[in-house]
Amino acid sequence: MFEVPEDRKYLESHEYATTDGETATVGISDFAQDELGDVVFVELPAEGDEMTRGEEFGVVESIKAVSDLYAPVSGTVVDVNEELFDRPELVNEDPYGEGWMLEVEVSDADEFDELLSPEEYRDQTE
C-alpha cells in the first residue's frame, strides 16, 4: 500500500499539491516514486517562474525512466527544494516531506476543486 496523505490533492499524473495554506507544496506521490525507481536527477523551475495548471514544469529521472512533471495548480514559484539537486534520493525516501519540490503561490484557489481527492487518487493507483 502506498501512502496517500489527506492534507493534499492529486493529479492523475501523480503530482500532489498541499491544500492547507496560502501557498501549495508540490511534489510527486509515493506511488510515483516507487514506479520510477531510484531517482537520479530532478530538474525544476527557478524561483519567480510562473506555472500553469496541467503544463510541464520539470523533469524527474531514474535510471530506467524519465517523467515530465505537470503542474497541479497555477501560480508563482516562491521556493524551490534545491536540496534535491544534490540528493535526488530524497524523492524516494520521503516524497511528501523532505522530497518536496516547489512552494507555489496559488493564483486561483478554485483549481483545487479539479484535483483528485486522496480517496479518488487512491482508487486510481489500486
Binding site: D38, V40, F41, I63, P88, E89
Partner: peptide, 11 residues
Amino acid sequence: ARRIDQVSAAR
C-alpha cells in the same frame, strides 16, 4: 567486476 551500482553512477 561484481554487481555495479547504476544508481550512484547516474546520480
